[in-house]
Amino acid sequence: MDHYSSIITSVRDRLYRLALRVVNDADEAEDVVQDVLVKSWKKRDQIVSLDNPPAWLMRMTKHQAIDRLRSARVRGVRETEAAAPDHDAQTPYRITAANDTLGHIHRLLQQLPPDQRTVLQLREVEGMEYKEIAEATNLSLSQVKTYLHRGRGKLRALLLEQRIVES
């Protein structure tokens, strides 16, 4: 397997999860990642020589996903779907949405601004360091920390509101 292919293989799932977090739709997320792969293939020689190719790919995925989300909002079809994620029946997202508590968490996350939920996704799901997140999102280190703090705070508030957590 060549270097480019091994990079894509190692980052493919992370790109898809990130796209899914932003656009909240399995088909759209798949399109986003495929577009990113097409663009990355055209620049493969540059990508393999980068210090951190996965960061470049994640940044590209985030931008592409946000662009697609904006287009969807222009069409007026995506906003209302935050309350009812459209995914394949067997995906963990569907299972999650079916559970009341986890469904609340999911819906709250989808209401956060894209940058904020991207930061949460990269920290909580991908286990990335602040510096790595900053590099993958084009945000400053302080923005990353602020978004993470705010995002977690909102999740805690939600849990308290839902009486899931007693203060």
Partner: peptide
Amino acid sequence: YWDEAAEIMAPVRIRPVH
């Protein structure tokens, strides 16, 4: 919730372009 989100895998249709 985070543990479940980490289990999501990309569909096999997504693959390197070449």
